[in-house]
């Protein structure tokens, strides 16, 4: 279904490869977690599958297509076999839930009759059957991500790629999203999900592929997030000093409302890098 053979990716400006000699095979119907620190190559991995980038060396086969030989002209029809979900949802703010999902079908030229059949069905699948006419800003983050998932799978893709889909969501909401993804996977769709979320990976007990500095350092079925390569999250067995004393903590007077500084970016960091590529001068 997805096969990487010795794939490396070097960006023009980067001095070290984003992906280094990656070899991997994903079988139909699998659910694979892609874990690793920021900058470990997870996003490059997904972008290569999406054919937003071409590999520098090595061969990538997806759904029987050699992506290195896929002409630009054929990329759109290739992408119809993939669904994609992002951390920042990427919904159209002026369109209703129904129209957001229908957009994916309309741009492919599906008939309205088909759209009025398929969209309510997929919205039911993600648990939003009664919110067709809401606008995205009227929904919670978890509900917005469900809309994004509905849009990704309404076209019945063979593969669903999810780039930190729970990154902006609290644990309870994330669990709901994971139920949806599990159902989609159970219906036969291969799911590839990049994540930082320890709890989710540990709960699901699915295949885990770990990337570190662009290399695949671990690939185990029914894996855990925590390993020696991921020491940041390894805390259970962390040795403590035997003679450590509890530290007395002085109560501090916090300013209850922090001063608003318009120059400080909000904590909800959103990946807008794809916008940069739209800002080039056309001539």
């Amino acid at each position: 279904m997805i096969r990487f053979d010795g794939v490396s990716k070097v960006y023009k400006s980067g001095n070290r490869p984003a992906l280094h000699d990656a070899t991997l095979e994903v079988k139909p119907g699998e659910f694979v977690f892609l874990v690793g620190a920021s900058g470990s190559g997870k996003s490059s991995f997904l972008r290569l599958i999406l054919r937003e980038e071409r590999s520098s060396t090595g061969i990538i086969h997806v759904l029987g297509q050699d992506l290195g030989r896929l002409s630009n002209r054929k990329v759109p029809s290739y992408r119809r076999n993939l669904g994609v979900v992002f951390q920042d949802f990427r919904l159209l703010p002026t369109k209703t839930v129904f129209d957001n999902v229908a957009f994916a079908l309309r741009v492919l030229g599906q008939s309205e009759a088909y759209i009025y059949d398929a969209v309510p069905e997929v919205l039911g699948l993600v648990g939003l059957g009664n919110k067709e006419n809401r606008l995205p800003h009227e929904l919670s983050g978890g509900e917005q991500q469900r809309v994004a998932i509905a849009r990704a799978v309404v076209n019945k893709p063979a593969i669903l790629l999810a780039d930190e889909p729970t990154g902006n969501l609290d644990p309870a909401t994330s669990a709901g999203i994971m139920d949806v993804l599990r159902n989609i996977n159970a219906a036969g769709t291969t799911v590839l999900m990049a994540t930082h979320d320890t709890a989710i990976v540990n709960d699901m007990k699915r295949r885990v592929v770990e990337l570190s500095d662009g290399r695949i350092v671990r690939d185990e079925a029914g894996g855990q997030y925590q390993t020696r390569a991921n020491p940041i999250f390894v805390d259970d067995s962390f040795p403590t000093r035997a003679d450590s004393q509890p530290i007395a903590i002085e109560p501090i007077d916090f300013d209850p409302i922090p001063a608003f500084d318009p120059m400080t970016p909000t904590s909800e960091a959103v990946d807008l890098s794809y916008l940069d590529r739209l800002e080039e001068d056309p001539l």
């Binding site: 759109p76 990427r90 492919l108 739209l278």
Partner: peptide, 23 residues
């Protein structure tokens, strides 16, 4: 170009879901 910029979200989504270049 400005028009495309103001519709960049739609464009990005169209490309992701595999709308043809013609479309």
């Amino acid at each position: 170009r400005l028009s495309a910029f103001s519709r960049r979200r739609e464009l990005a989504i169209m490309r992701l879901v595999g709308a043809s270049n013609w479309f």
